[in-house]
């Protein structure tokens, strides 16, 4: 089993700052940072939206597009655009683990989103390199304390 992806409080704050800047700069309605396996890592914006569902569907679409790219002998498509009459979604790959989704409407445009994504990508890549370089020891606080009883308790009732 691969090691878990761990995000600490101060890293979440760094992500917030970064994605808030993207949200404002691109005049977007929402910015979602997802793990490629379909988990929501962080989200910004004010639209009421089922982000868990969004994450699983986007991850599915990206996975399917990746399969298609391979089929036609291409590297994974770096971005997907779902363009609607009112609302659109721009999804881009960040490194090999993360997906950045921008939800926007007529106040913005694909070109503006792409422009603003350049900075966001650079910063996110730097941040994910920091995450990868972090000592493994730092990951343990929760699980070092966890006992078999804690796990049993969770499944105690039937």
């Amino acid at each position: 089993m691969r090691p878990p992806f761990v995000l600490f409080q101060e890293e979440s704050q760094r992500l917030s700052a970064l994605c808030e800047a993207l949200l404002r700069g691109a005049h977007a309605r929402g910015v979602f940072l997802l793990h490629r396996d379909g988990q929501v890592i962080a989200q910004w914006g004010d639209l009421p939206l089922d982000t868990t569902a969004l994450a699983s569907l986007v991850a599915g679409a990206v996975a399917a597009a990746g399969g298609l790219a391979q089929l036609v002998g291409e590297a994974p498509f770096p971005a997907l655009l779902h363009e609607g009459a009112r609302r659109s979604l721009h999804t881009s790959l960040v490194g090999d683990k993360l997906l950045l989704v921008v939800l926007f409407d007529e106040r913005s445009s694909p070109a503006l989103v792409r422009l603003k994504l350049k900075d966001a990508h650079r910063d996110l890549l730097a941040l994910s390199e920091d995450l990868a370089a972090r000592p493994l020891r730092a990951l343990t606080p929760l699980f070092a304390e966890l006992s078999d009883d804690d796990i049993d308790d969770l499944f105690g009732e039937s």
Binding site: P4, Q9, S12, L142
Partner: peptide
Amino acid sequence: MSFINYSSREINCKI
């Protein structure tokens, strides 16, 4: 891949 988020205090796993 499981995802442990200390900020929202969640453990997420995929089955």
